[in-house]
């Protein structure tokens, strides 16, 4: 069984499928997230595929400060994802609310609503930063105990 577990753990590290959700961003981080999948950066080199259904996804790539209207939906999507699952907060707004922090319709960072594994600051996040974050997140899985650590971004 040890071997199978190792193989599965290897699979989890080598095959991160992402689900992209915009919780109220300005679009900038979203287009950079998508740009990371296109020829110049090509995240598929690392096995990343963009999935449409939360049921198929491993990493929730979440951009933007959470608005009141998306809050419930964000929770719902997070709950729909099967374990093991990870959340990446992409962009300064997703990390802390950023420039929109304090607006009447904004909750603040993603971590106000769901637990976050990786914080990627930047306005907008560059695709390189995103690639590096994915790699760092996957590297943390080599040490199973420390996977919840928040230093990965």
């Amino acid at each position: 069984m040890g071997l199978l577990k190792k193989a599965i753990n290897w699979g989890i590290r080598k095959s991160p499928w992402i689900l992209h959700f915009n919780a109220g961003a300005c679009n900038g981080c979203d287009i950079e997230t998508i740009a990371a999948l296109t020829p110049r950066f090509d995240l598929e080199r690392m096995g990343v595929i963009q999935q449409g259904s939360p049921r198929h996804a491993d990493i929730l790539v979440c951009t933007g400060a959470v608005t009141l209207q998306t809050k419930e939906r964000l929770k719902q999507i997070y709950d729909q994802m099967p374990e093991p699952k990870f959340v990446m907060a992409v962009g300064t707004c997703a990390c802390s609310g950023g420039i929109f922090d304090g607006c009447y319709c904004v909750m603040g960072g993603i971590d106000k609503v769901i637990p976050v594994d990786v914080y990627i600051p930047g306005c907008a996040v560059r695709p390189e930063a995103l690639i590096s974050a994915v790699q760092k997140l996957l590297d943390t899985l080599k040490r199973p105990k420390k996977r919840g650590e928040e230093d990965a971004g």
Partner: peptide, 30 residues
Amino acid sequence: YNHRGLEKACESRNYIQTLYLIERVCGICS
């Protein structure tokens, strides 16, 4: 879903700050 209350936020910042906030109306046509 994307309403962030940006116009209201502009009313509590000075003009230079507002300029950067206005740019974040949209990341594509900033």
